[in-house]
């Protein structure tokens, strides 16, 4: 409900802003401003939410709104992949990451001091300025809209229906090397993550609780071993900690 309220408040603000700034109600622009406004609000929610899972959910809403923006740009494949990778996979990764971290899953998160917030704020503002300047300085930023002739509806539809095929052709011919490099990058991240995670002593100490391959039933120990650190079921210190 909070999320919904925030989003609709964002719509309202965005609508007012749009009337104030643009003066004209172009339908496409109106939709864009509303989606973008809601996305900005979700981003703010991500930063401000006290509970990390709520924060991650705002981020998921933000990802979805970005997918909506891709649809508006008629980049259907990209939008679908945005949902597939970011909501389907990265969100799960985030959730598991939160569950992995001590003392942040609940609602008793301690507030960070200004000293720790300041560098983050500086980095964020710096990144924003950098991106804004980079976008502004693109030579075709202002000209592109006015000078390029809009393609006909039929031509656009033909291209859009062939989008995945065209993408594949480009990827395999023109962008062959980057494509392979992405593969290398993926492999590096996979290997790196697995290697980093492995030497943790608690994980390799499987001697205390590894089920013998022949164990026929799922014992209560098996259940409790799911919690962190491979602690033995009798002690379970992380279950009784305050």
């Amino acid at each position: 409900m909070l999320l919904l309220m925030l989003v609709s408040a964002g719509m309202l603000v965005a609508g007012l802003w749009e009337i104030l700034i643009f003066r004209e109600f172009g339908p496409m622009r109106g939709v864009f401003v509303q989606i973008a406004g809601a996305a900005v609000l979700c981003a703010v929610g991500t930063v401000l939410a006290r509970n990390l899972i709520h924060s991650a959910l705002y981020l998921v809403a933000f990802f979805f709104l970005v997918a909506c923006l891709f649809i508006m740009l008629e980049a259907e494949f990209l939008a679908v992949m945005q949902v597939l990778v970011f909501i389907g996979a990265v969100a799960i990764l985030l959730m598991f990451g939160i569950m992995l971290t001590q003392d942040v899953q609940g609602d008793q998160v301690e507030a960070h001091s200004v000293l720790r917030r300041l560098p983050a704020a500086i980095v964020a503002i710096g990144l924003f300025v950098m991106l804004a300047v980079a976008v502004q300085q693109r030579p075709d930023f202002s000209k592109a809209r006015t000078e390029r002739a809009a393609p006909s509806v039929a031509a656009r539809e033909r291209v859009l229906n062939q989008m995945p095929q065209e993408l594949g052709l480009d990827l395999m011919q023109r962008w062959c090397l980057p494509f392979e490099l992405v593969g290398l990058l993926l492999t590096a991240s996979l290997v790196g993550a697995v290697a980093l995670a492995q030497p943790v002593g608690s994980l390799s100490a499987g001697s205390d609780g590894t089920p013998s391959p022949g164990s026929l039933t799922e014992t209560p120990e098996h259940l409790s071993r799911e919690v962190a650190g491979g602690t033995h079921s009798s002690s379970r210190p992380d279950l009784v900690s305050p």
Partner: peptide, 10 residues
Amino acid sequence: LPSGVPYLIA
């Protein structure tokens, strides 16, 4: 949809 299969997975 032209991207029907990934849409389903998504």
